[in-house]
Write a protein that binds this DNA or RNA. Sequence first.
DNA 1: CTGAATATGTGAAATATTTAACAAATAGGC
DNA 2: GCCTATTTGTTAAATATTTCACATATTCAG
Lengths: 222, 222
Amino acid sequence: MVVNKLALSQATIKRIPVYYRTVKALQQSGVKRVRSDRLSKLVHIAPATIRRDFSNFGDLGRSGYGYSVDLLAEVFGELLEVHSEEQMLLVGCGNLGRALLTNNFRRNPDLSIVMGFDTDPSLIGTTIAGIPIYNLATLSEKIRPGMHTAIVCVPSSAQASVISQLEANGITAILTFAPKPVPAQPGTKIRYIDLTSELQALLFVDHQSKLVQEPKTPLKQS
Amino acid sequence: MVVNKLALSQATIKRIPVYYRTVKALQQSGVKRVRSDRLSKLVHIAPATIRRDFSNFGDLGRSGYGYSVDLLAEVFGELLEVHSEEQMLLVGCGNLGRALLTNNFRRNPDLSIVMGFDTDPSLIGTTIAGIPIYNLATLSEKIRPGMHTAIVCVPSSAQASVISQLEANGITAILTFAPKPVPAQPGTKIRYIDLTSELQALLFVDHQSKLVQEPKTPLKQS
DNA sequence: CTGAATATGTGAAATATTTAACAAATAGGC
DNA sequence: GCCTATTTGTTAAATATTTCACATATTCAG
């Protein structure tokens, strides 16, 4: 096996896709080399953090030169297994599901939603953006071997049931937009995207920062 | 001013909305008290972390009893300023924008998108889910005083320009789905939601965990 | 009212993550 | 080829966050 298990921190793992996207963009602009401080401005991550992250993957850089963009693209592409297309399924073809099906990660040729599932009879049998929508009850018939990944856009109330169905059918990686945590089987990785929480946390810090900046009702000019 | 500036960690801030949602749900089920270990199972956060988070807001709990659900709901609601409706605008009414307009945080009566902006002539002047869509060029005319928050669903290439327009019109909190970091003015808080990165990081950890679990091609049963 | 049971709040330890700072290595002009 | 300017990789320090463990406070049954 080519890839060894790396002891990467969670923080580093979350940054790998960001690095990958950025060096790919540089590569496509014809840039051949990049220094950690230049990259820092592009990704908003401190140069020292970038260098430390990169050092996990061997000595990628050269003192006094920087990093080869091509090499970085290759290394991160390998880590993310960009060489093989990940065929994913999506459950819940409401507004958000439809938006994701339509968008379908077109910028990333290695990510592709290939089928959708729903329980709404008016959707079953149709296609959205060319992707067929099946009855969720027929999941086990439609799923193809080698599919490990699902995107879940169902209401919180339906989520637990949907996720256990997915697990029963060999899905091990799930991205879900319903914020209700569910007990997952040991082998299953679930990532929750909680838009309301993100927004509320943003509003909270925005308001907090205004509390400090606000002038303390000055009685006189001075 | 009632609310004092609190020195909360970023980690704690991100959890406040989760706590709020959960205690609200408990409250609506008629639950009156909750212990940190019970809450832990609901939110998937360690009991000690919950207690430490809560201790930031004063002595909310009582030994041998737990926490009053009503009190928690009140405290977190106050922190998040749920009493006043946050009127937000959305820029970019493509697939994702349309999905968010249609959904419009209905579960949260205090969050509301009240207008959309786009540059596409075929959208300008229409409504989506009852929300009017205006020409982005007329932002300064349409925006209402007291609006501080925007959701951005435009392509990465348009993002920098859109964000500086928003800043020029008094927007200080921005949630965006375009992953390209932009230089923001000091007072502006920007939160990036990067779906592709989330998905790639998820796939990465899923694959990593399989590398360990995989049996090492056993030669014989034993 | 008493005492056993319970569950908080927190000091201290453990863990995770970022950042500073610099020796060592390389680049590239001359 | 030499020498100076760069820029890495990394050690050590700083910061951030989580978790343990338990003294203390409160509950509630009898």
